[in-house]
């Protein structure tokens, strides 16, 4: 993980949010996307008789369910466009292209997609005639349309054909009922100045809390504000290193992406001097002997930002009364 620190010493690090979402389609979207796989473009007849392409499940004006499918042409007219000089990850084309809304012949609404325009923005204009360029491999997704491409210019350019939508039953063999939509977004996470101070001290194996100037409670990890008083905390207080297990659970299921052998004990640990418990793993003792009130201390390892775990100090257990307010 590449982490950074700003002029104020505040930390940041990359945060990737990525998941292949699995989307079920419902009947209309299923027919449309299956149709694309078969190089067939379907629309739906709206309540006012318009043909909507792409077909929507519910009427944009009346909200009524739409199910009457029709077929339209793979050619159409650009209704508006904008140039994209630097395509991003996931966009239809890797080289500069135009985003376009295209009203396909036979349709009354427009579909958003990319237009491959090797001639650059000067070659694109509203009203130009285009046709679908099909993807070589099609699976039943909007990306089965690779993009649009210009239709050879001609007289028709000025006067698009008045194609009529044709009835279609929407039936295909082996219909597509779902799509997988991978999505990755890259963030830079900033834990904040207070947490950065806390993390910096951890590097020296010291746990620093911060005291609220109003209620005098000590927060660990500090979060920049006393959450009950709504004021900034800035007085640093060194805590522990020992503390008391206030409560815990024994974890018996292995979580994906978590490199901890089960069973293990996940505990709430009130470090001496802290106003509330922090969370950590408790080890160095059989898991079924961990108990509330157990006195523990941190165990550090070379490569870890946090204590690897907490182990018993050997002191007598803390009295319930002494930590019950910290539960």
């Amino acid at each position: 993980m590449t982490t950074g620190a700003s002029a104020t010493g505040a930390l940041s690090a990359p945060l990737v949010v990525e998941f292949p979402f699995t989307r079920s389609l419902g009947p209309v979207q299923s027919a449309f996307l299956t149709g694309l796989r078969e190089r067939t473009v379907l629309g739906v007849t709206a309540a006012d008789g318009r043909t909507l392409v792409p077909p929507v499940e519910y009427d944009p004006v009346t909200a009524q369910e739409l199910r009457t499918l029709v077929e339209v042409e793979p050619t159409g007219t650009v209704t508006t466009w904008t140039w994209n000089p630097a395509p991003r990850r996931g966009q239809p084309l890797a080289r500069p292209f135009a985003w376009v809304l295209v009203r396909l012949d036979g349709a009354d609404s427009a579909l958003l997609h990319a237009l491959d325009a090797p001639g650059g923005p000067a070659s694109v204009r509203t009203g130009m005639r285009v046709r679908i360029r099909w993807a070589a491999e099609r699976h039943g997704a909007i990306t089965d349309i690779a993009c649009f491409e210009p239709l050879d210019a001609g007289p028709a350019d000025e006067d698009p054909p008045t194609a009529q939508p044709r009835p279609h039953d929407g039936e295909f063999a082996d219909p597509v009922t779902g799509i997988t939509a991978p999505a990755r977004l890259d963030y830079t996470y900033t834990p904040g100045r207070a947490q950065s101070r806390f993390l910096a001290a951890l590097r020296d194996r010291r746990t620093l809390g911060e005291r609220c100037p109003a209620c005098r409670k000590v927060y660990v990890p500090p979060r920049g504000a006393c959450p009950t008083c709504g004021v900034a905390t800035d007085e640093q207080v060194e805590l522990g290193p020992a503390g008391t297990v206030t409560t815990f659970c024994v974890v018996n299921i292995k979580a994906k992406g978590l490199d901890i052998e089960v069973p293990y004990v996940y505990g709430h640990i009130a470090l001496d001097g802290a106003g509330l418990a922090l969370h950590g793993r408790i080890a160095g003792i059989p898991y079924d002997e961990v108990r509330m009130g157990l006195r523990v201390e941190p165990v550090w390892t070379e490569d870890s930002r946090y204590p690897d775990h907490y182990r018993p100090t050997g002191e007598p257990d803390a009295d319930y009364e002494s930590y019950k307010e910290l539960l």
Binding site: L11, Y189, P191, F248, C249, K256, G257, H279, R281
Partner: peptide, 22 residues
């Protein structure tokens, strides 16, 4: 996973179990 936070748990059950014990 949130950077700088120690991954200790997954899911809500582990979060709430200590409160049940309390």
């Amino acid at each position: 996973p949130v950077p700088f936070q120690q991954p200790l748990l997954a899911g809500a059950g582990g979060f709430f179990a200590p409160h049940v014990r309390a």
